[in-house]
């Protein structure tokens, strides 16, 4: 089996690859979003602590 055949998925390429792409995007977003939020929150809190220490 060559690559072209693999990507063609027997004519169902659109349905199969769109399904996998959407799944990948959703799963990635659900992991990345809380990490970004945590980083942002940590940065804000660090700034807030600094302000409190030397106003």
């Amino acid at each position: 089996m060559n690559w072209q055949e693999f990507f063609a998925m027997g004519g169902y390429a659109f349905y199969v690859w769109v399904s996998y792409a959407i799944t990948f995007v959703v799963l990635l977003a659900l992991v990345i979003m809380p990490i970004i939020q945590r980083k942002q929150f940590m940065r804000q809190q660090t700034l807030r602590l600094k302000r409190q220490e030397n106003p």
Binding site: V31, Q37, F41, Q45, L49
Partner: peptide, 26 residues
């Protein structure tokens, strides 16, 4: 994995005024 990531974020936000989060930030 995804649940723990969200839980860790949720935890530091809720406990923002506690000593351990302050230590973590420092």
């Amino acid at each position: 994995i995804a649940m723990l990531q969200r839980a860790r974020t949720e935890l530091v936000v809720r406990e923002r005024n506690s000593q351990w989060v302050k230590l973590l930030l420092e």
